[in-house]
Amino acid sequence: MSAHTYATLVDLAAGALLLSAVLVVWRRDLQATARLLAVQGAALGAIPILSGIRRGDVQLAVVGVAVVALRAVVFPKLIAVRLRGELAHEREGAPLVNTTASLLVTATLVIVAYALSRPLVRLDASPAARAAPVGYALVLIGVFLLVTRRKALSQVVAFLVLDNGIDAVAFLATLGVPVVVELGASLDVLLAVVILGVLAGRMHAKFGGTDLDELRELRE
């Protein structure tokens, strides 16, 4: 793989990451966001795979495959399963901020992310690192989603976007963190998502819905 092709493909993957994140902000339907998450996971996994191929680093490629398996298949599947039993209106993301405003905020966040990642890009001018700002943007978008979404599962989605962003920075800037950390972190995220899924199920059973506004009993 030539340097140019590699750079193009990495840029493409980064673009897909950002685009999918913006679409997650845009779309209200949870099933659609689950599918977008799958796309995002695949794009994320593509980055280490590409790097692995280019450098002949098998371990990195394997990590990429694992990422794809986890983030493009397992997580969306978990969400989809949880969604299956729900009524249509329950699948709405129900944001606190309307879509137009959300998109404006997202645009701002992307600009902030570019500004924020300047020091990193200054240190490392490789093609992958130059795409790292996308990861920053995903992190910020993830935080924004977490703050503004009122459904249990939409918060899980937001959390995953955030995590994808961090992984993206890791892969783009440094070819991933040490394996033991990567494994541990993935396991943790998996467990967290599983726990959140179980809790969403219990919530559904107890409250008859997963609207987070219901969770206002414990207050000062």
């Binding site: 935080v143 977490l146 703050v147 503004t148 009122r150 987070l212 506004d213 969770l215 206002r216 000062e220």
Partner: peptide, 19 residues
């Protein structure tokens, strides 16, 4: 006390502020 009204979203917004 009123600032701590139990809303998850508000609590997360506090966190976003830190970011």
């Amino acid at each position: 006390r009123r600032a701590h009204n139990g809303s998850v979203n508000r609590y997360l917004a506090f966190g976003a502020l830190a970011v």
